[in-house]
Design a binder for these strands. Structure first.
Length: 426
RNA sequence: CGGAGCGUGGUGUAACGGCUAACAUCCCUGUUUUGGGAACAGGUGACUCCGGGUUCGAAUCCCGGCGCUCCGACCA
């Protein structure tokens, strides 16, 4: 994409109504636009990152046999009354609205109820199981306090998967498999080293749950990391003496081995048991003819929060630093025109290189702005946007038939023969 | 939901109750410049969040809204 056609611009100054680093950088670099507190639009650059993250999630969910679907955001009150979660006293972060005829509707903050109810039309027999279904969808949560930029919004994107298994054993087998899929997602988006599977309390549905927590000072949670085993427990576990004892024993770790860290929850999986299948009478007929409740699990990950987390964890003083797999573009080609400007030899060579990259299937952002935008400004913008590989072509480099390559993450600079540029992307 | 702070051109800031609301940046014209956010000249752009009130006079003081940020509570 030619940068002259990109409608967003970078900003030199931090927005006055944001303090958090993720919002500051993402807004200044033109990835997101704030609409109101906790509600952000995704601009072309930000959407590219979001789509890449979603595609990685799709691949990893597909790899463990999950199928994608898309449920509705508008929710039927009756369905939620079935599980007892319509009441504002039970769930206090509902957005509710009404039809013209005063029928109440909700805007989905999660989708256990709807999907369980839907599955009644498709799950009848043991032969229909298991089913693993997920969606990537906008969720609405009426948070009393939106904060931390895109880390905690009122409208946000969420991948939520639900598993439907015939019994506890097969549920547990899939639950374990899902952990692997989640780990691969964090590795691929560049957060693997800092993300720990964290045992947490189960809340109302089960004895325990697992969170994926990325260590960062911008986090809201306190976790206790066992660095040797690469696992953690949530503070809430240690606060509960009986839970702490059994969970630490199960994990084979001792309290003294744990190090306290601030972290942001970037994923959460938990067994649902038959909490919803009982409520909705989602049963199946087993081979022996008896009726049994489906055993369920729920698996969430927030792509938009992941963007914020990457911005918090991987950025530096000059701006964003995108890992290869989620970067909006693989290459940032910068041309420094000669005195003939857009008609000059350097411009022609850079145009040709851009075409070559594009034809090779390499996504490149081409900073083709003319000499009114000087080198320093182009470099500063490039640092801020954070594309992994920068390729600079100028009169100087062209004279040697080279380009200059700078790696955003490390700052490493080297000269590469123009003909070898494609080799940078294998 | 408790507490604190804030709301002024697109952006970031300034302005004692008193001239035509100032500066920087961005943007537009032109000249010059060309490897880390250049220089000069000219120009566009604001009912100072909204509604009331006090006053000869309000961006400024008072009241009420709305909005934003932060701390806390909450967060299957």
């Amino acid at each position: 994409m030619r940068q002259t056609t990109l409608f967003t611009k970078t900003r030199k100054e931090a927005p006055k109504d944001e303090v958090s680093k993720n919002a500051d950088l993402l807004i200044r670099a033109g990835f997101i636009h704030k609409e109101m507190a906790g509600v952000y639009s995704y601009l072309p650059l930000g959407l590219r990152v979001l789509n890449k993250i979603c595609d990685i999630i799709r691949e990893e969910m597909g790899a463990i046999g999950a199928q994608e679907l898309h449920l509705t955001a508008l929710q039927d009150k009756k369905v939620w009354e079935t599980s007892g979660r319509w009441d504002d006293a039970v769930v206090d972060n509902w957005f509710k609205t009404k039809l013209k005829n005063d029928t109440e509707l909700g805007l989905g903050f999660t989708h256990e109820e709807q999907l369980t109810n839907l599955m009644k039309d498709y799950i009848r027999s043991v032969h229909d199981l298991p089913v693993y279904a997920y969606q990537i969808q906008t969720k609405f949560r009426n948070e009393t306090r939106a904060k931390s930029g895109i880390m905690r919004g009122r409208e946000f994107l969420m991948k939520d998967m639900y598993s439907f298994s015939k019994d506890v054993a097969s549920h547990e087998a899939f639950y374990e498999k899902s952990k692997g899929a989640y780990k691969r997602v964090y590795e691929r988006i560049g957060l693997g080293d800092k993300t720990f599977i964290t045992t947490a309390l189960g809340g109302s549905f089960s004895k325990f749950s697992h969170e994926f927590q990325t260590v960062t000072d911008a986090g809201e949670d306190l976790i206790y990391v066992h660095e040797g085993k690469g696992i953690a427990v949530n503070k809430e576990v240690l606060d509960d003496a009986t839970a702490a004892q059994s969970i630490l024993a199960e994990l084979g770790i001792a309290r003294e081995e744990l190090v306290e860290k601030k972290a942001i929850e970037v994923g959460n999986i938990f067994p649902l048991g038959t909490r919803f299948s009982d409520a909705f009478e989602l049963n199946y007929q087993d081979t022996d003819g008896t009726k049994k409740p489906v055993v369920m699990g729920s698996y969430g990950i927030g792509p938009s929060r992941l963007i914020g987390t990457i911005a918090e964890v991987l950025s530096d003083a000059n701006g964003l630093v995108w890992p290869k797999e989620v970067a909006p573009f693989q290459a940032h080609l910068i041309v420094l025109h000669d005195k003939d400007g857009k008609e000059g030899k350097v411009a022609k060579a850079a145009d040709a290189l851009y075409d070559k990259l594009t034809q090779a299937g390499i996504e490149a952002l081409y900073d083709d702005r003319d000499a009114k935008t000087r080198a320093g400004e182009k470099f500063a913008d490039s640092d801020l946007i954070g594309i992994p590989i920068r390729i600079i072509m100028s009169e100087k480099t062209l004279a040697e038939d080279m380009v200059e390559v700078k790696i955003r993450a490390t700052g490493e600079v080297r000269k590469v023969p123009s003909c070898d540029v494609l080799a940078l992307f294998v």
